[in-house]
């Protein structure tokens, strides 16, 4: 099994390498560069040239890619041109804020999704299932900014329970983020629950119609014991991968929710970076998010291998 995990690790590193190449080249291809965006109207050919010289923008692309990659491996993400600060410093607190958001949503969302998914699976095609399944379609496919806007209207504007937008700076202690964070967490949780519960439901139905559950029923195993001891563990296994994918997807799209709530997270910074043509900043954030995505998938795959004896010998394709 360790060779299998080793193979999977090498694959992850290869993927990460390709991602770094795509991200670097993609950002390099953006029209204009930081020098023009930074100087704006006041740009003269001389000031542009000196700024490009200062930030090493004149070196050939492959040279800059290798320099950047070398820095990333050592944990140095380079310097933001628009903010004149190291990228790592800019990301620091905002990354923490995004993690707070994502973690809270995951801690509430995953258990909730499992419970609702199991209920829906057990009551297949009866009203609890129809209700849960239909609402989950909406939670899953309505864009985050629509859900967020509706929540803001009812809970911030009409009821005035929570602030509509965040007005605290990015470096406040976590506790001070609290009232600001409730609506973004609810938005994220709704999307996440919808994704995960649909899979739990499908797995639950698959397992419940399997031979060994029929066998357990025939043997006279009590209903709840059948559900919790026989069905649930088997239905949970494929869920691990979906949880990882969903978390990664949320991180990829969290920028929109952060923008709606003006929440000082990494996604909002990413969008500013693109508008400002701040190459180093965008590349840094992209690579961090890609590392998280790949790591989450890796963890999920390894976990499933450990938990599922069948996968230990199966060859990955």
């Amino acid at each position: 099994m360790s060779t299998l995990i080793g193979r999977r690790l090498i694959l992850a590193v290869v993927t990460l390498f390709i991602v770094s190449l795509i991200v670097f080249m993609g950002v390099e291809a953006l029209p204009g560069d930081t020098a023009t965006a930074y100087l704006g109207q006041s740009a003269t050919p001389e000031s542009l040239a000196s700024l490009r010289e200062e930030f090493g923008l004149n070196a050939p692309v492959h040279q800059r890619y290798l320099d950047w990659l070398g820095g990333v491996v050592k944990g140095d993400l380079g310097e933001s041109m628009s903010k004149r600060k190291p990228v790592a410093d800019l990301i620091g607190n905002r990354f923490r804020n995004t993690l707070v958001l994502a973690t809270a949503a995951a801690l509430i969302g995953i258990p909730l999704a499992i419970v609702l998914g199991v209920i829906a699976g057990l009551t297949r095609d009866k009203w609890p299932d129809v209700f849960v399944s239909t609402t989950s379609i909406m939670g899953m496919t309505l864009p985050g900014f629509v859900t967020a806007t509706i929540l803001i209207y009812f809970f911030a504007i009409r009821l005035e329970w929570f602030p509509a937008i965040t007005l605290v700076p990015s470096d406040v202690p976590v506790l001070e983020l609290l009232p600001n964070i409730v609506l973004p967490i609810i938005t994220l949780t709704l999307i996440m629950v919808a994704h995960i519960l649909r899979l739990v439901r499908t797995n639950m139905i698959d397992v419940l119609t399997s031979d060994y559950i029929q066998m357990a029923k025939l043997k006279g195993v009590p209903y709840w014991s059948m559900v919790f001891k026989h069905a649930l563990p088997n239905a949970m296994l494929p869920t691990i991968n979906v949880v990882a994918l969903t978390l990664a997807w949320l991180l990829g799209g969290v920028a929109i929710i952060e923008t709606v709530f003006n929440y000082p997270g990494i996604g909002q910074l990413m969008i500013t970076g693109i508008t400002d043509r701040d190459f180093a900043l965008v590349q840094g954030i992209a690579i961090i998010l890609a590392v998280i995505y790949i790591a989450l998938n890796l963890i999920a795959d390894v976990l499933s291998m450990i938990l599922n004896p069948k996968l230990r010998t199966a060859r990955g394709h």
Binding site: L11, V14, T15, L16, I18, V19, I22, V23, G26, V27, A29, L30, P31, W249, L251, G252, G253, A255, I256, G267, M270, I271, I274, V282, I285, A286, L289, A290, Y293, I294
Partner: peptide, 22 residues
């Protein structure tokens, strides 16, 4: 498939934003 995996590891919003900006 390695390329596809890599493309899918890039945050989807960022991928769209970069391509559209370019």
């Amino acid at each position: 498939m390695r390329l596809v995996d890599a493309m899918l590891s890039i945050p989807w919003l960022l991928l769209l934003l970069i391509i559209i900006s370019v």
